[in-house]
């Protein structure tokens, strides 16, 4: 299976560990990653400024995939939603499609809409399959109970065809189980990380992150597993500040699903960027020899 990696903004400019672990793990599962030139921001972070801009930018990125006739791997849930919503609008409103295509033509592009979109979770769970994951596992991970955090935009709105069940997502848990890691339910699972408020309400944003960290910590989880660069930024990079803002002393190891997969596949933790996680991931006892 060949997929073009749509990087978005945050992953390639800051959340390097996500990109590193994706590039390391996917080829092991038979996915060839292709890098296409010309991608830009999906536009979703600017939706509050002007949604026409968002739509145009999403359509622009989709049309690059259309030009190459290739499906997209979109590891960022926010980008995944922006691109899905753009597809929904352009496929459902012919007039809007004409209007956007007139703009795209100036760059020599055209939106057709043939490309399929994959996030990491559905790609692994639905396309690659859990049997393949189990076959790739080379290392027995310690007995862990990790809190799964999906990220709002991969869950909702289900109207835009989200890859997981909006109210009872189970795919990440199933992937974790096939790696030998437990993931119990918790009441705050579907809650927001607070990230979208960071531009104009930074304190509140951090408080929101802190509250969820506190809840995860209270319920005795060993750590959190994520598949969103924005959430990772909040829960991992900003963990100390976030916990402090709600007077919590939570120390929660946070890592990407693809990092955990890489470790279970026996990949060297340096190649998975584990040193870039600022949360106490060493507490998990994940490093060590392949058995």
């Amino acid at each position: 299976m060949k997929l073009a990696l749509y990087p978005g903004c945050l992953m390639p400019t800051e959340q390097y560990a996500y990109e590193m672990s994706i590039r390391e793990t996917l080829p092991l599962m038979g996915v060839e990653i292709v890098d296409l030139p010309g991608f830009s921001c999906c536009g979703e972070p600017l939706k509050s400024i002007n949604q026409m801009l968002t739509l145009h930018m999403s359509a622009r990125n989709l049309s690059i995939a259309d030009r190459e006739g290739i499906d997209l791997l979109v590891p960022c849930p926010m980008c995944h939603l922006a691109l899905s919503e753009a597809k929904n609008i352009l496929d459902g409103n012919g007039e809007m499609k004409k209007r956007i295509n007139a703009k795209l033509r100036e760059e020599g592009l055209e939106y057709i809409g043939k490309q399929r979109l994959f996030h990491i979770i559905d790609l692994v769970h639905d396309e690659i399959g859990l049997d393949t994951i189990r076959e790739r596992v080379k290392k027995t991970l310690p007995d862990l109970n990790m809190a799964a955090h999906y990220g709002c935009h991969i869950l909702r709105p289900s109207e835009m065809g989200r890859p997981v069940d909006s109210e009872n997502p189970r795919k990440m848990e199933a992937i974790l189980l096939s790696l030998g890691v437990r993931s119990e339910d918790y009441a705050e699972k579907l809650d927001c990380c607070g990230g979208p408020l960071l531009p104009n309400h930074p304190e509140t944003s951090l408080a929101k992150t802190g509250q969820k960290l506190q809840a995860v910590s209270e319920q005795g989880f060993d750590g959190m597993v994520l598949a969103c660069p924005w959430c990772q930024k909040m829960f991992d990079s900003k963990q100390t500040k976030a916990a402090e803002s709600v007077g919590s002393r939570a120390h929660v190891p946070v890592l990407y699903l693809t990092q955990l997969m890489g470790l279970a596949f026996g990949i060297d933790d340096a190649k998975l960027g584990l040193n870039l996680n600022l949360s106490p991931v060493d507490d998990l006892g994940l490093k060590g020899e392949v058995e």
């Binding site: 390639p12 400019t13 800051e14 296409l36 190649k271 991931v281």
Partner: peptide, 28 residues
Amino acid sequence: GYIQDRQTVPTRSGDTVKREDLGLPVLS
């Protein structure tokens, strides 16, 4: 084209690294 340019980020061991240091392909 992106909301920010490539950042220099800290590591858990107290260093800082750039995208270029990590063996990732050049961001086109």
